[in-house]
Write a protein that binds this DNA or RNA. Structure first.
Length: 491
RNA sequence: CGGGAGGUAGUUCAGCCCGGUAGAAUACCUGGUUUGGGACCAGGGGGUCGCAGGUUCGAAUCCUGUCCUCCCGACCA
């Protein structure tokens, strides 16, 4: 068949591409570095987005929308910020095309040059803080808790579907607070929201931590992150939450009058997750037969495949399936009855396995006679025969069991791939032969971090939150260290 | 952005070296037989050979440029 999937062992990168393309999540586009998210992949993103949106609203946030274009001058107002993003910005310089006088289609009209060039947002801190300046006068205006769902553009040299594309979809929360502590609390709260979402809905275990200075967001005081582990032993940053201090408030002159009638700069946070989460989901759970999607966010939770000979049997099966479909839908389960006559059952089995549908129900004449169905779960590929009686409730419970099992399996793998090492030799050996996170002492300097990166391509993914104090010596420099940090090669 | 590979039917690919009417498998359409792990028979439709120039009587094939993709590297989320 056409839809063969490269195995993970043979070529992990190609396996990932195969899953995304053949699983129907996305396609390449005519534009370099930009992808088309197909309906199945977009439904997955919608399910993720909707749940996150609920969680943001439960924690008091509201949505708004800010412009795609940012005046060039805004970007340079915060020194570290411009430093971090300048090299990957798309710039709009003209506002009109005209017919080519030489007959070559349309060309940019040189007369239509913009007075001030516009940047296509790589992130929205600058335009948002320029706006917040007008919205905030008093402590009564605080906290300001706003999120936006948007697309952003970062001009990437090397792209990969979902993991790194020039344009991607994300949400960015931008909040303003009266006190430093309140802003820090917000930063941590949103980190926890992300961790809860990724673990409970995506079934991907994460480590919460804080970034070192060199991995910090451009313009932040502290960057908190959740780090996940992929099946090839590489880490993936799944979400970040930044404590911005007063950096943007000072750059954009955002001040408020406190209760004592004194002017102060506000304290800020920003936090985001992107369509990159789809890539994380794919690489965390899937196998050589295709996608494996967690029930809570799968575009389709259950598929029913009829097996019949002739119209009479087909009709009997349809009669039996109709009430089952109703019961499943009443329980909030998404279900599809695939009675397409063109494809045979075996073809359908393979197809829905490729697409990662968590539960497949097969019903044939033999089953009708015995009042049972065959249920196959995608995560373990186990098949079992289950009575029709109470089937909807059985399926509901099974979906929850699959969700839990997927998380536990991923967590077991992750936990087995956190290795404590105390020597530089062990560090290199473990990284080369086993991969995953390496827990090691670090002397706290950017120089050592850089040297380790140059030698091994591994970076410090994070300093885990609530890290134990553990006196030792740096695995690279031998200098004293108070705690272990997590290293890994990363996406 | 550097190195390597590639772009021909919806898809996977052959044809290119050595220029001469664009092929296969699969998918698709019609009819029939089928249906418990990617069915079979018969008939049928479908491609400006990525795009643009050039060489030539003639270009998928040779030359130049350009766009898109993959892998590796640098950079970065």
């Amino acid at each position: 068949m056409a839809k063969e999937i490269t195995s993970r062992a043979q070529d992990y990168s190609q396996w990932y591409n195969d899953l995304v393309l053949k699983g129907g999540l996305a396609d390449y586009s005519a534009v370099r570095g930009c992808m088309v998210i197909k309906p199945y992949g977009y439904t997955l993103w919608e399910n993720m987005r909707d749940q996150l949106d609920r969680m943001f609203k439960e924690t008091g946030h509201v949505n708004a929308y800010f412009p795609l274009f940012i005046p060039k001058s805004f970007l340079s107002k915060e020194a570290a910020h411009v430093e971090g993003f300048a090299k990957e910005c798309a710039v709009v310089t003209h506002y009109r095309l005209k017919n080519d006088p030489n007959g070559g289609g349309v060309v940019v009209d040189p007369e239509a040059k913009l007075e001030e060039e516009l940047i296509v947002r790589p992130t929205s801190e600058t335009i948002i803080w320029n706006t917040y300046k007008d919205w905030i006068q008093s402590y009564r205006d605080l906290p300001l808790l706003i999120n936006q769902w948007a697309n952003v553009v970062r001009w990437e040299m090397r792209t990969r579907l979902f993991l790194r594309t020039s344009e991607f979809l994300w949400q960015e929360g931008h909040t303003a607070h009266a006190t430093k502590q309140e802003a820090i609390d917000e930063t941590i709260q949103m980190l926890n929201v992300y961790a809860t979402f990724v673990e409970d809905y995506m079934a991907v275990p994460v480590i919460k931590g804080v970034k070192t200075e060199s991995e910090r967001f451009a313009g932040a005081e502290d960057t908190y992150c959740i780090e996940a582990l992929m099946q090839d032993g590489k880490a993936l940053q799944a979400g970040t939450s930044h404590f911005l201090g007063q950096n943007f408030a000072k750059a954009f002159d955002v001040k408020f009058l406190n209760k004592e009638n004194q002017l102060e700069h506000v304290w800020a946070t920003s936090w985001g997750v992107s369509t990159r989460l789809v890539g994380a989901l794919v690489m965390a759970h899937s196998d050589d037969d295709g996608l494996v999607l967690p029930p809570r966010i799968a575009p389709l939770q259950v598929v029913i495949v009829p097996i019949f000979k002739g119209d009479e049997e087909k009709g009997m099966i349809e009669n039996a399936v109709a009430p089952l479909m109703r019961e499943l839908k009443d329980l909030g389960i998404s279900v599809k009855f695939d009675n397409n006559d063109n494809a045979r059952p075996g073809w359908k089995f393979a197809e829905y396995e490729m697409k990662g549908v968590p539960v497949r129900i097969a019903i044939g004449a033999r089953d009708l006679k015995n009042n049972v169905v065959e249920i196959a779960r995608r995560d373990t590929k186990e098949k079992s025969t289950v009575p029709m009686e109470g089937l909807a409730f059985y399926v509901k419970a099974l979906l929850e069991e699959i969700q839990l099992h997927m998380y536990n399996r991923a967590k077991k793998y992750r936990d087995e791939h956190i290795t404590s090492v105390n020597t530089w030799d062990d560090f290199k050996t473990v990284l080369a032969e086993k991969g995953g996170f390496i827990s090691a002492h670090w002397d706290g300097t950017a120089e050592t971090e850089e040297a380790i990166k140059d030698a091994t391509k591994a970076t410090i993914r994070c300093i885990p939150l609530n890290n134990e104090e553990d006196n030792g010596v740096c695995v690279f420099s031998g200098k004293p260290s108070k705690q272990r940090v997590l290293f890994a090669q990363a996406y």
